[in-house]
């Protein structure tokens, strides 16, 4: 039995790496039909797949289109399974809640979208507020959703200042310790993160997932 399970999990992982949406979805359906342990299917099957996608990215073999597609395949498969998870498992399955946005005045969303997709694929619940979002609104949403993590991107040096405002507002409202804040965008450097007193940044979408896990004590 274990061997059979292992081979199904391997197929699930492979479907993600092979970017095979149809196969992944039918395997997810199979997991439901055959009453497989669903949480294991996510973690050992599709989750293993997205981990391999990340490794292939790190090795320089995968490019952004493959990364995005891999994350989407993973996501769709998991979405089939999630409604059927028991309440307790569902909570275990969620690595954490992330509220993400591109800051006010900035409409450059590609980078943020890639990071959001990767975080979702890696088990985070992501609330993506889109582009040109006021610092106040990002915080209000984070409070409303009881987020663990706030991710704010900026592409322009003229809008970057909004990232700092997030931290300042959190401090003013006395809720700085309720959230980890990660910054993103081309002009963002570790020095800027330090200056803003944010919690971190990452150079690319795969590194962002690692950073998010690390900040939430998951790795």
């Amino acid at each position: 039995m274990v061997l059979i399970m292992d081979s199904i999990y391997e197929e699930m992982a492979a479907s993600v790496v092979e970017l095979d949406m149809e196969k992944a979805k039918s395997l997810a359906q199979k997991a439901l039909d055959e009453q497989l342990p669903l949480l294991e299917a996510i973690e050992k099957g599709f989750g293993e797949g997205i981990k391999r996608v990340g490794n292939l990215w790190d090795a320089g073999e995968f490019f952004l289109p493959e990364l995005m597609r891999g994350a989407q395949v993973m996501q769709e498969a998991v979405d089939i399974i999630t409604p059927h998870l028991e309440e307790g498992s569902r909570a275990r399955e969620t690595k954490g809640k992330v509220v993400m946005a591109t800051i006010e005045g900035d409409i450059h969303t590609i980078g943020k979208t890639i990071v959001a997709t990767m975080l979702k694929a890696n088990g985070f619940e992501v609330i993506d507020l889109g582009a040109d979002v006021k610092a106040e609104d990002i915080i209000a949403e984070a409070v409303k959703h009881r987020a663990d993590l706030i991710g704010v991107s900026a592409l322009l040096t003229t809008t970057m200042i909004g990232q700092k405002k997030i931290i300042e507002l959190l401090e003013q409202q006395g809720i700085r310790d309720k959230f980890k804040v990660i910054l993103g965008g081309a002009p963002v450097t570790s020095k800027w993160v330090e200056e803003c007193k944010a919690d971190g940044y990452a150079e690319n979408a795969v590194a962002a997932v690692t950073k998010a896990k690390q900040l939430l004590g998951l790795s």
Binding site: G60, F63, L64, P65, I110, G111, I114, A186, N204, A205
Partner: peptide, 8 residues
Amino acid sequence: VFDMKNGT
């Protein structure tokens, strides 16, 4: 074009 590694 979109750089498929760096997103630049």
